[in-house]
Design a protein around this nucleic acid. Structure first.
Lengths: 196, 196
DNA sequence: CGCGACGTTGATTTGCCTCAACGATTGTGG
DNA sequence: CCACAATCGTTGAGGCAAATCAACGTCGCG
């Protein structure tokens, strides 16, 4: 594991739980390094998601493939964890796809390793719970954005609150995330530019 | 607590965790009965959601109020638990409203009581975790419905998978849940009837 | 260098929204 | 218990935003 990745995991964990150096060591020993090329697919729908991914560099998205069309669920950047919880926890095949949008470096934590760590370091359960709670809040916020906002408003929220998405993600993926077509996002942007 | 409510909680709990009669007794002793009239509001946005609600009779919805208009997040029926997790856990003011859509009977479990029960009956933590996991899956499924389906498809899914919603919830609330106006739902129904 | 991916623009269609009106049903106060 | 009012669902006309289909320029990568 790279020194930088090591440091990033440490910072991430310390937000949730206080580990001694030796406990932290135990944690990192379970992590498996994986590098990904741009556009490489990490998990295909139908496969079981056996790992949680810590992104030490790059970014991921998860998406659905419907009738040949991609629908982006969410983007994740360096410093974050992602996994398909449902598949990870239950061992059922995943219904989503996970893909790197940039050349990325990941640290993989298998379900098996995580459960073992829970045994060895009980206070890690707190980490597990807080990660799950965060995931819940994120999904619910996204829900509310669909319920309460128009596509244009969702785009403006993105501009305001997640500049990384705007600056690093190709526009047609953003459209797919907003639930509209690339042409429509192009026109929304044009409209907004005209009204300035 | 009514005998029926008692039995329903027992059935609910037994899906998640195995309690001895005396443990179950401890649990039920913490529950507070509350009855609600049709349309009565249980929690207003801005208030802290201090209780989880077990619905022993009737149904609830949670909704947002935007510019005088209601946007329904979800419906819940007898036999289910609901609470605004974010507010319940953090103690922050809730941004949603909770309302009974029928005359309902609830059993309230305060955050304080729950934490105390976790201490007394450690295996209840499992119940807490599973409830949270279920909630997560529910929210994510709803997310996917917005991302992957048209309003008409969402309505058809509802028809197929949640007949209780169709038969017991007034149509304009269903429209608000689907993210459309009552007039549009009426037209969708007409369209579907014509194409039969 | 050439090809494919990406973003833009135009013309047209489609589905939902808005505003308005109108029965039917529900609920309430006298 | 009835009469009236409010709520609810439906329908019509017209507007608007996104989808669709098509074309085209640019950029990046092999």
């Amino acid at each position: 594991m790279s020194e930088i990745g090591y440091q990033m995991v440490k910072e991430n964990l310390s937000q949730f739980v206080d580990l001694t150096p030796s406990e932290f060591e135990k944690f990192t020993q379970q992590l498996v390094y994986k590098s990904l090329k741009k556009k490489e697919v990490l998990l295909q729908e139908g496969e079981v998601c056996r790992n949680a991914y810590f992104i030490s560099r790059g970014c991921l998205r998860y998406f659905f493939n419907l009738e040949g069309e991609d629908k982006t669920g969410q983007f994740f950047f360096e410093g974050a964890w992602y996994t398909d919880f449902e598949s990870y926890i239950t061992g059922q095949p995943s219904s989503e796809n996970i893909q790197a949008l940039e050349a990325s470096e990941l640290l993989l934590l298998s379900r098996k390793s995580l459960l073992q760590l829970f045994d060895e370091i009980p206070k890690l359960e707190r980490f597990g719970r807080l990660i799950a709670e965060n995931a819940f809040l994120g999904v619910k916020a996204r829900n509310n954005s669909f319920l309460n906002q128009t596509p244009e408003e969702r785009y403006q929220t993105l501009l305001r609150e997640r500049p990384k998405v705007i600056s690093r993600i190709p526009q047609h993926y953003i459209a797919s995330y907003l639930g509209i077509k690339p042409e429509s996002l192009s026109r929304i942007r044009k409209r907004m530019a005209d009204n300035t």
